[in-house]
Simulated scan of single mutants.
Amino acid sequence: MLLNCGQPLPLLRHTDVPPRVIENFILTGYRFPNYSLRECLLSAFRPTNETGNFWTHFLPVFIFFYYFMEVFGWDGAPHSDAPFFYPLWNYFIGVFCLLMASSMAHLLNSMSLVVREVCFFVDYGTISAYTVGSSLAYYYYIHPRAGIVETGEHNISHMDLKHEPTRVPVSSYAIPEFSVFFETLYIPCTCAVAIICVISCCNTRLKWKQHRYIIRTFVFLLPFLSSSTPVFYRLFTKSPYSTTSASFVTSSTMSKFFYHHCLWLLVSAVFNISKFPERLAPGRFDIWGHSHQWFHCFTFLSILDELHMIKAEMRAILLSPTLLLPPATLSHLPGPTIASTYGVMLLLQTTIISIILWFSWHANCIYGPQRDQLAKERPKKHLKCQ
């Protein structure tokens, strides 16, 4: 009599799975394509070559949330649903989607060859959404410094200048050319770059497969450079705060966190491209310690330092109330609104979803027949028990 003994399907070697599933230098620990949803979920608690990939981005969700919620307990901070926090919530959406999509992609990609492709298309899409979420935070918490001018008496914002047109600044903190870029092109450019990155990375799963890791790594170097423009601006210009102010002390930590952010990104890129250490000892790091797990760890460290950098800038602003620019103002640097934050993210996500659907349709055309064939050859779960 055939009984369902509840035994998990056997893990396979790289010679026993479709070529599309094989990862470089990973020889064992493969799950058979056409796992059920339940089997995929249970595999999170079973040592496979994807288990570490899942946990190294799933657990960080809770760590990130802990440090994120800290800002709402600051003295003098507005309510959590205040417009001042709109960019921060969009940043949270970007990071949360990135970490969850990445962990779920590694957990669920054995359901079928088509599902595998769709999982990683979604993963690439959320990376771009995270980039734009970061850009919104940079724009509203770091970019306003481009709107500060230094007078002979004290620093004031464009909002203050509007009510005092006769005051002539002695020296300008803002560089006019950069102000034009920030006010009109910065957010549209980061969105355009994000969309280009999604298309390029999705293409590496259908074309350019031989150099896919290098392409994916360098494709995301461009959005880092474009989104970090406000940070570079701050690093190469004079601080808008008085050197004796609490805001100056708080804001001065921004550079340290940004350099750490860059360092972790660089280290993660090295692991992603080099496939170290499994390249040196194929088969030894199949389950734990292979490059993609280290890539996940260092990527999260970069996100955590980025969060600390944003929080430092937010704290500096809150310690200088004149820098808070409410949505109602008609200044050159209006504060965050629903349309300029959530609206931008919604439009971007809609565009990304359309791109993912288009690539998913093509993936189904390519891998659909193989999926059906593998479903017929799937090992039986029912084993004969005594």
Rank of each mutant, 00 (worst) to 15 (best):
L9D: 07
L11N: 11
L11Q: 10
L12D: 04
H14A: 15
P18R: 08
N24E: 13
N24C: 05
S36M: 06
L37F: 15
E39W: 12
L42F: 10
L42R: 15
F45Y: 05
F68E: 12
F68P: 06
M69F: 13
G76D: 13
H79A: 11
Y91P: 09
F92D: 08
G94H: 03
S102F: 02
S102L: 03
M104D: 00
N109F: 07
S112E: 00
T131V: 08
L136F: 05
Y139C: 05
I142C: 05
H143G: 13
R145P: 00
N155F: 00
S157H: 12
P165Q: 03
T166G: 12
T166H: 15
R167P: 06
R167Q: 10
S172G: 03
E177M: 06
F178E: 11
S179F: 00
Y186V: 02
T190R: 06
I195P: 04
C201K: 06
T204F: 06
L206H: 11
L206G: 03
W208I: 11
Q210Y: 08
R216T: 14
F218L: 13
V219C: 14
V219A: 13
V231Y: 01
L235A: 07
K238Y: 05
S239Q: 01
T243S: 14
T244E: 15
S252I: 11
S252A: 13
T253K: 12
F257R: 09
H260W: 14
H261N: 10
V267M: 08
F271I: 01
I273M: 00
K275I: 00
G283Y: 08
G289F: 02
H292A: 13
W294A: 15
F295N: 15
T299K: 10
F300W: 09
L301C: 15
S302V: 00
L304M: 12
E306Y: 05
R315L: 00
P321R: 02
L323T: 06
P326K: 02
P327A: 03
P327T: 06
A328D: 10
S331L: 01
A339H: 14
T341L: 01
S354Q: 12
I355M: 04
F359Q: 09
W361S: 09
G368D: 11
Q370K: 06
D372H: 11
